[in-house]
Computed example of a mutant assay.
Amino acid sequence: MDQRISFITLAVEDLDATRRFYRDGLGWSPELDVPGEVLMFRAGEHLLLSLWDRRHFEAEVGATMSGPGVAPVTIAHNMPTPAGVDEVLAAARAAGAPVVHEAAQRDWGGYSGYFADPDGYRWEVAFNPGPVGRLVLP
């Protein structure tokens, strides 16, 4: 098996709210938009973020877990500067996202903050000055 990821698929409760957030709020352009079913965005050269209506997701994948707390996954968007982190967090806030952790200097040497999408999935916006940070920037 090749060492790569092609899709990240997240189950969402309200696909219309998700569309408004990602497309209208953040300004992303969908690669595929099937109303009531799925919304896909190019997230990298060979990577798609698939936002799938929960009912359709469960019909194929199985029942999802629910309850209090945060889904045990984060999605990260890296920036080349700390100022870029602040700009993305401001854009997410303007799109209606709650900023769940303001950007701060981190023990690992970088600078990052978190916002939540309409389903509560946490997005980390980070500046990572180390070698791993350089791996993920275009």
Results as ranks from 00 to 15, higher is better:
68 P>A: 07
68 P>T: 01
72 P>H: 10
73 V>H: 13
36 G>E: 06
88 V>N: 01
33 D>F: 07
56 H>G: 14
102 E>A: 11
4 R>G: 04
80 P>W: 05
67 G>W: 14
19 R>K: 13
94 A>K: 15
32 L>Q: 07
119 D>S: 07
86 D>M: 08
128 N>L: 14
126 A>P: 13
134 R>I: 05
36 G>R: 06
110 G>I: 07
35 P>V: 02
80 P>H: 06
122 R>W: 14
105 Q>S: 13
69 G>E: 12
33 D>K: 04
59 A>R: 13
123 W>N: 01
62 G>H: 00
123 W>K: 04
99 V>I: 14
117 D>L: 08
81 T>N: 08
122 R>C: 12
136 V>N: 15
36 G>I: 11
21 F>D: 00
63 A>N: 02
107 D>F: 06
44 G>I: 01
69 G>L: 10
86 D>S: 06
117 D>Q: 03
131 P>L: 06
71 A>V: 05
8 I>S: 02
94 A>E: 15
9 T>M: 05
109 G>I: 08
57 F>R: 05
122 R>H: 15
121 Y>N: 05
105 Q>N: 11
30 P>I: 09
73 V>F: 14
85 V>K: 08
79 M>F: 07
49 L>P: 04
29 S>Q: 14
134 R>E: 09
86 D>I: 02
84 G>L: 10
5 I>M: 11
12 V>F: 07
52 W>R: 00
64 T>I: 05
135 L>C: 15
8 I>K: 04
105 Q>F: 03
112 S>Y: 04
9 T>E: 10
77 H>L: 15
36 G>F: 09
61 V>E: 05
69 G>P: 05
49 L>Q: 05
110 G>T: 03
101 H>G: 12
4 R>C: 13
117 D>H: 09
83 A>T: 10
38 V>L: 08
92 A>I: 03
58 E>Q: 01
15 L>S: 06
125 V>F: 04
103 A>K: 03
1 M>Q: 14
65 M>H: 07
27 G>V: 09
94 A>M: 14
16 D>G: 10
